[in-house]
């Protein structure tokens, strides 16, 4: 209950300050619409928002699954091969330094206007946190466990599958949670670059162009809400899938 009420209270306080500022400062609603304006837009445009959330949500979910899968595979490959790790880690870091607004239009040119460039943008942004957290979780596996597996005649692969990979799963989830938040922004950029005619990125572009700022803020709110839901779902999934992690941290305190 506390975990629900506290963030709710924080949001309400923030909205209160925002509302107060928008009312007192006399700033134009074209620059900063008040929370009440945004709330009204959320209600009035709920049809359009829902309609446009669906394709964006689908892109994000597909993109995260793709990005996390690629991230996991890359982390495993880099773990198993020191040569690959040393050779490509700087490249991986560099891949994250490329600004998406520059890369996204190029991807559209290369891959067309369909779903693919959007998925690639999301996957590109999401795979990296998964690689980094998974790799550090793999590196943190208890060396005594690996010795133990050697005395049980386990080969490289057996040790990896039975010990290293399960030990690293909390790292995979940590990366996926970070990625979930990034993926929302990536989806917007992808939609805008691809000139999509649906999705929250499209809605945001159109409303900003029409100077419908309350409506634009409403799209952002929906997107932020979706990111929170995604994060919460991953946390829930992690607790279900890795019960030992949650238990050992809660009893260890």
């Amino acid at each position: 209950m506390r975990r629900l009420l506290l963030p709710l209270a924080a949001i309400l306080v923030l909205l209160g300050i925002w509302q107060l500022y928008a009312g007192v400062s006399g700033v134009s609603s074209l620059v900063l619409p008040s929370p009440v304006d945004v709330g009204r837009a959320l209600v009035e445009d709920r049809g359009a928002l829902w309609h446009n959330l669906k394709p964006t949500a689908a892109e994000i979910l597909l993109g995260i699954v793709l990005g996390a899968a690629v991230g996991l595979l890359v982390a495993v490959a880099l773990r198993l091969s020191a040569l690959a790790r040393e050779a490509t880690y700087p490249l991986l870091v560099a891949s994250q330094a490329i600004p998406i607004p520059i890369l996204a239009p190029l991807l559209v040119v290369w891959l067309g206007f369909g779903l693919l460039p959007k998925l690639v943008v999301i996957a590109l942004v999401t795979f990296f946190p998964v690689v980094v957290t998974t790799l550090s979780a793999l590196a943190a596996v208890d060396p005594d466990l690996i010795k133990l597996m050697r005395t049980l005649d386990a080969g490289r692969w057996q040790t990896f599958v039975r010990v290293e990979l399960p030990s690293a799963l909390p790292g995979v989830f940590a990366g996926a949670k970070v990625a979930a938040v990034f993926s929302v922004i990536a989806a917007l950029l992808g939609e805008q670059a691809a000139g999509s005619n649906s999705g929250l990125g499209y809605l945001l572009t159109v409303t900003v162009q029409n100077l419908e700022m309350s409506e634009a803020f409403a799209s952002v709110c929906v997107l932020a809400g979706f990111a929170i839901v995604l994060f919460a779902l991953l946390t829930l999934l992690e607790r279900r899938a890795l019960p030992w992690v949650h238990r050992s941290t809660s009893t260890g305190a």
Binding site: D142, D144, L145, L148, M149, L152, D153, A154, Q158, R162, V163, P166, L242, W244, S248
Partner: peptide
């Protein structure tokens, strides 16, 4: 340290060597 695998039930921990084989 016992070094049991926290994600496996006791029976599978005991059987680890058999599974590896």
């Amino acid at each position: 340290r016992d070094l049991l695998l926290p994600w496996l039930p006791a029976v599978d921990n005991a059987a680890l060597a058999l599974r590896v084989r």
